[in-house]
């Protein structure tokens, strides 16, 4: 049993900025001199954009665009989703540029191009800035500037507010910083309508409240990595028991929140019933995570892994149902 908080790196000071240079990165190298003379492979630049995370960003952005009342020229719609994807890729590159030393100390991230020395750190930063600025400019010129402004906010939110400011300082980093991942459907929706209404804000809120249980489920089974590099993830700082309680609380809130678009008449029955079933199942998956304790070092953390896997499926199906509702039933009111 290990409900107590894991010890942080002795150099970590709660509430103080993390000096990445102080992190003990163990035996893994932060540079690989043998390969630094060679130009980076294009696949390394691609992996800087975190393509797997981008797939969820593209999907929710596309769903926001398709579920919005009104229509958009398919070319412009494609451009809007492309800008959301490139913006997310730019923010991810800036994240990896800033966290290269931290990534080197974690098993999950140690094989990324920067910790492996396959890419120059300055190149990664410039690549991130180029993608970020380019995506905002194209969004503004091709779609409109409100969508571009929100895209810019989402990039700054992830790269600065989350990565640089909150992540090394507070165990609530995921709660606030997770908002960065909630922007894509909002941007997609606004690309069509041109203005902010309650419905896209609700979609934002759903992803905002979905992120903590999704990420903390992951953090529960990779927490030793976070402790090693001094990142104050909730399981590291507050302990497993507190994290499990928080997962349950957010899962409870997610149920009525996911139904709100239907309650206010913004969607039809396809979405409403899907949200009820999916969020109910989310809660069912969160219960065993909330009321169990790790049984030892050989605990395979199956409920936590199951919740993490289901949470990804949840978001895909929920947003898929939102689009199906709009396309089949014509959706609800233009909220």
């Amino acid at each position: 049993m290990s409900a107590a908080p894991l010890p942080l790196s002795p150099r970590f000071r709660y509430g103080a900025p993390l000096d990445v240079a102080e992190i003990d990165t163990g035996p893994m190298p932060t540079t690989a001199p043998a390969t630094t003379r060679l130009p980076a492979d294009w696949r390394d630049f691609l992996s800087l954009t975190k393509p797997r995370v981008m797939s969820l960003v593209v999907f929710t952005g596309l769903c926001g665009l398709l579920a919005a009342p009104g229509s958009i020229n398919p070319i412009l719609g494609f451009t809007a989703v492309l800008c959301i994807a490139i913006g997310a890729g730019g923010a991810a590159a800036l994240n990896q540029w800033w966290e290269a030393d931290i990534d080197a100390g974690m098993k999950r991230t140690s094989r990324r191009p920067l910790p492996q020395g396959r890419l120059n750190r300055t190149d990664a930063r410039d690549f991130g800035i180029m993608l970020s600025v380019g995506s905002v400019l194209v969004m503004g010129l091709a779609i409109h500037w409100l969508a571009a402004a929100i895209l810019a906010v989402s990039i700054l939110y992830y790269a600065v507010v989350y990565t640089i400011w909150l992540k090394p300082r507070t165990p609530q980093n995921i709660v606030i910083g997770g908002g960065a991942g909630a922007f894509p459907p909002l941007i997609g929706w606004i690309a069509v309508t041109g203005h902010i209404t309650p419905m896209p804000l609700l979609l934002f809120a759903i992803i905002f409240f979905w992120t903590p249980p999704h990420f903390w489920a992951l953090a529960l089974f990779v927490q030793t990595d976070y402790a090693k590099v001094g990142i104050p993830m909730l399981p590291v700082v507050a302990g497993e028991a507190a994290t499990r309680r928080q997962i349950l609380l957010y899962s409870i809130v997610l149920l009525p929140l996911s139904l709100t678009p239907w309650w206010i008449g913004g969607t039809g029955l396809i979405y409403g019933l899907s949200a009820l079933v999916l969020s109910g199942l989310f809660l069912v998956q969160a219960l065993p995570v909330a009321f169990r304790r790790k049984s030892g070092d050989d605990d395979r953390m199956k409920p936590e892994k199951r919740l993490f896997g289901y949470s990804i499926l949840y978001l895909f199906i929920l947003f898929g149902a939102l689009v199906a509702d709009r396309l089949i039933l014509g959706g609800g009111l233009s909220l």
Binding site: R37, L38, P39, D41
Partner: peptide, 19 residues
Amino acid sequence: MTPDEEREYKARRRSRNIA
């Protein structure tokens, strides 16, 4: 730079240019 490294250098430069 060894011949192998030079070959690798050119291959990477070429693939980046194509991309």
